[in-house]
């Protein structure tokens, strides 16, 4: 154990998770990387140690295995200062429309699991009286669209959960950040046509998360242009919105 601050990244294998871990390690945090496959986390752990001489641990974590959450939190060597949930699943809207199992997995991976695990950490943080929780949601949660409302509605639920938790926890010295990426070039969006000027690389999101934690920001859009884009999309009347094909 060191006297440095520590961050736990749930979904450490994702491009955004790797970028966030680097940003925090660069500014001196010890890091925990959690994910389903510990073997894929090891090279990233070695990378962080070699670059920044910080302590890095890797932990097995499956966001669908809610029954194991209590013991997962209990098994950590120490309660971190910051916990970031980056876990998410885009899935396939079209199959999710008729395949209930797939729809359920999308909903659980983006809403149920991330909310429950951050909620659990929130209780520990409130007992301690400090800590920051970060949830990576999505602009897709700001309004359900025809092309991805199953994923979008789960993100909307997660955003609402974070908003409520923030209001409650802020009185107990615990801060909650909601991160809403727009388009990010990652494994999730590989091969998709993204709109260049509205798209960022994962390190931009990683840096934005670090800044939001340090500045105690409540809600961040990345890139910031999405705040305006979503404002417009949210204010379109349903009569107009339902005719749009996206």
């Amino acid at each position: 154990m060191t006297s440095r601050k520590s961050v736990l990244v749930l979904g450490g294998s994702s491009d955004i998770g790797r970028a966030a871990a680097r940003a925090f390690a660069r500014s001196g945090y010890d890091v925990g990387l959690a994910g389903r496959d510990v073997a894929v986390l090891e090279p990233d752990a070695a990378d962080l140690r070699a670059r920044y001489s910080v302590e890095v641990g890797v932990y097995r974590f499956d966001v669908l295995d809610t029954a194991a959450f209590e013991s997962f939190v209990g098994s950590l060597p120490a309660l971190p200062d910051v916990v970031i949930s980056i876990v998410g699943l885009l899935g396939t809207q079209e199959s999710a429309q008729s395949d209930l199992a797939h729809a359920t997995t999308i909903m659980r991976s983006n809403y149920e699991g991330p909310s429950l695990i951050l909620g659990l950490f929130a209780e520990k943080f409130l007992t301690r009286g400090s800590g920051t929780l970060v949830g990576v949601s999505s602009v897709a949660g700001d309004r359900g669209r025809a092309l991805n409302y199953i994923y979008g509605s789960a993100k909307a639920g997660f955003s609402a959960f974070l908003s409520g938790l923030r209001a409650r926890a802020s009185r107990g010295g615990v801060h909650v950040v909601t991160v809403k990426p727009g388009f990010v070039r990652t494994k999730m969006t590989e091969g998709m046509k993204l709109i260049g000027p509205l798209t960022v690389d994962a390190p931009v999101v990683g840096d934005a998360i670090l800044r939001a934690v340090e500045n105690k920001t409540d809600v961040v859009y990345v890139s910031g242009k999405w705040r305006l884009v979503m404002l417009i999309i949210k204010t379109l009347p349903e009569a107009v919105f339902k005719k749009l094909k996206f």
Partner: peptide, 13 residues
């Protein structure tokens, strides 16, 4: 883009 190992004494990477 990962660093595998770095020796801060010799500078080997």
């Amino acid at each position: 883009d990962r660093i595998r190992s770095f020796d801060p004494v010799t500078g080997r990477i």
